[in-house]
Design a protein around this nucleic acid. Structure first.
Lengths: 165, 165
DNA sequence: ACTGTAATGTTATATTGTAACATAATGCAG
DNA sequence: CTGCATTATGTTACAATATAACATTACAGT
């Protein structure tokens, strides 16, 4: 049911389509859950997807303003709060930046590959990682509420690109 | 060789000893690596361990000032940079806070259990997690440079404490 | 239409982190 | 030991990120 974005989409992928797909997913999800995906929230979510890599809150604020909306920091942060609470957006805390979640409605976990070269982020959904984490934590009597895994490095494309030089 | 802090040390553990142990480790490590653990850096590291849970940079700044040192933000941040570069301290990015690293000199990876109730943090060193991550990333052609795993939840002690109420 | 709730607007400010340049301490070659 | 290069620290100013608090508007259900 969820859109399956390839990790690190190639430069020539159908970006417009991929954004609108994500939005349709979000709309459907909110509908189904009785969540109010207001115009503002929709707009912010669209901007996040359109950037297609982690965006800062103040960058979103600028973009909102350019789209003609009157906005201040709380405008953006409140929209982000809503989107995060409902699993439509993740925060990459090592970068103070936000990305669209490719499988809305999932648990509150996230795994990111962050390419230091091109800045793109791919979201993983590796069940094995999840289960190993759960196991490790439980052994210590720790009850897991949520977690984030942020992996920095170099993506395949950038590796090849640098070899070409 | 490294001090093996139990995850989530009990309230009655020998705190003073545990701090001085960590400092001795750090001193030895720096000696051996030819790193300059200056007075300032030593002082900051000591404060971090003394807090024994994630501390913010400005909190450290306050504490430094109370110890009579003239300090401004860069004072702290530079010490933190040094300590992090050399694996003596980790940054918990989901909290903008810093903790002592229980096994200095390790790779640039970190796994934290963060108790939402008592605020304490335990550092894991689960090799299985590391290898699953490496494997998952490599499958996508991604070269891992470093990673952080931040797990929020409730520690064993807090779980029992809340049952007693 | 009326009303309570949820969402947004607005202003001000808190918190976290850096840039840039000046001064002081340290290690080392001669 | 002296001067020199390097590294560390002091100092001032500011950038970037995030929230508090209160006013206003929109909305859903009656």
């Amino acid at each position: 049911m969820t859109h399956n974005n390839p990790p690190f989409p190639s430069a020539d992928h159908d970006h417009k389509n991929c954004v609108s797909h994500a939005l349709k997913n979000a709309e459907a999800y909110c509908q189904q859950q009785g969540l109010r995906l207001t115009k503002l929230r929709h707009q912010v979510l669209e901007l996040i997807w359109a950037n297609h890599q982690p965006v800062g809150a103040y960058e979103l604020l600028d973009q909102l303003t350019h789209e003609g909306r009157k906005a201040a920091p709380p405008t953006v942060y409140r929209a982000l709060d809503f989107l995060m609470e409902n699993g439509l957006v993740h925060r990459i805390s090592s970068r103070n930046a936000y990305v669209g979640c490719s499988n809305a409605g999932h648990e509150h976990t996230a795994q990111f590959l962050i390419c230091e070269s091109c800045g793109q982020v791919a979201e993983l959904d590796n069940a094995q990682i999840g289960s190993v984490i759960a196991k490790g934590a439980n052994q210590l009597g720790f009850t897991v509420a949520q977690w984030t895994l942020e992996i920095s490095g170099t993506c395949d494309q950038c590796k090849h690109r640098s070899q070409d030089e």
